[in-house]
Amino acid sequence: MNRYLYDGTAEGLLSAVARILSEEADPDQVTLAERENTFFEEGIYLATDTAAAEEFFSRLQQQAAEAVYTFYYFTMTEREGMETSMLRYLALAMQHGNKVNGYLTHTAVKEIVTVSRKAGRELHRMKGLLRFEKLRDGAYLAKMEPDNNIIHPLALHFSKRLRAEDWFIYDVRRRTAARWHRGTLSLGAIEQFTAPQMSEEEQAVQELWKTFFGTIAIPERRNPRLQKSNMPMKYWKYLTEKQGK
């Protein structure tokens, strides 16, 4: 039983999977893990081969477009130690095509699909829970700390929705930002973040929203538990309506 290693990047993972699937007689018997570069580490290191990764990716896209989405969401979860499951999953995707996500009784498929779904769910949630504030220069800024690295697809969503505005989305934990400026989207790292000045009307609009949030609830139906289960408290930090409470 061979143990393979790769460099920990998404590209490296794809190229390693491509090589294992083409060279191993029985891919179900091997394992794949991220290289940790310790002295005693055992295994065969597969260097990242960009061309091989790209070639495999386009084949996957043709054979099983669903699996590409699953892989994409999987990389957003930044989950470690699941490479072997991903290897098995991708092997099955090549074999069964788009139907692979229905093979939930298979342990690897179940694991990968479950984890990917978490990122998908948080992405959807954040489309609703992200809050923009208007800055002095007229642009909008939103801060967030999601569990998954969803900034790219999230920014794509807002680039279709708030096209006429200029805005930033800042992932506080990962120190990455997305910027929409004059109809162009760019992504990058932020070394140092200084809180910019708010526009003059910002406070008043926030008050209006807080007022609405307060009065729209029916007092006779108060149900904080339901509220928390739908909107976990970890997201409250940047919610305008939950500030100053």
Binding site: R163, F213, N223
Partner: peptide
Amino acid sequence: EGNPYSTGNTSQSGICHSWSDDGRCISLL
């Protein structure tokens, strides 16, 4: 779909934006 001169689009599945103190979702003003 949105277009370059307008604000806003809609999504097939709908999006909840908050949940009020009675636990019901807030999606619309």
